[in-house]
């Protein structure tokens, strides 16, 4: 499983979205269910799934699905294998 797919599962679960949603379009505020409360649930879910602790700056920077892929993949060196 690729990192994108794992992240997609987490976003769909936390934001309670349809399974066939185009995750690449997910953005804070423009995605209806992605408000500040949901944001902190996302942060918790990401930290638990990857066993990481996000820096403050990253808590505020994960403002889109793509940002999450970039930050989790590069800065935290998370690579998901089959």
């Amino acid at each position: 499983m690729k990192l994108e797919d794992v992240l997609a599962e987490i976003f769909i679960d936390v934001l309670r979205l349809d399974k066939d949603v185009d995750v690449k379009t997910l953005k804070y505020r423009s995605t209806e269910k992605w408000d500040s409360l949901a944001h902190m649930e996302l942060v918790t879910a990401l930290e638990e799934r990857f066993d990481i602790m996000l820096d403050n700056v990253d808590v505020l920077r994960i403002s889109s699905f793509q940002a999450a892929v970039d930050i989790i993949g590069t800065k935290y060196g998370v690579a998901v294998e089959a």
């Binding site: 804070y28 408000d35 500040s36 944001h39 700056v57 505020l60 403002s63």
Partner: peptide
């Protein structure tokens, strides 16, 4: 804006 956005701060 809300507290989870850097623009807010």
């Amino acid at each position: 804006r809300s507290m989870v956005e850097s623009d807010f701060w």
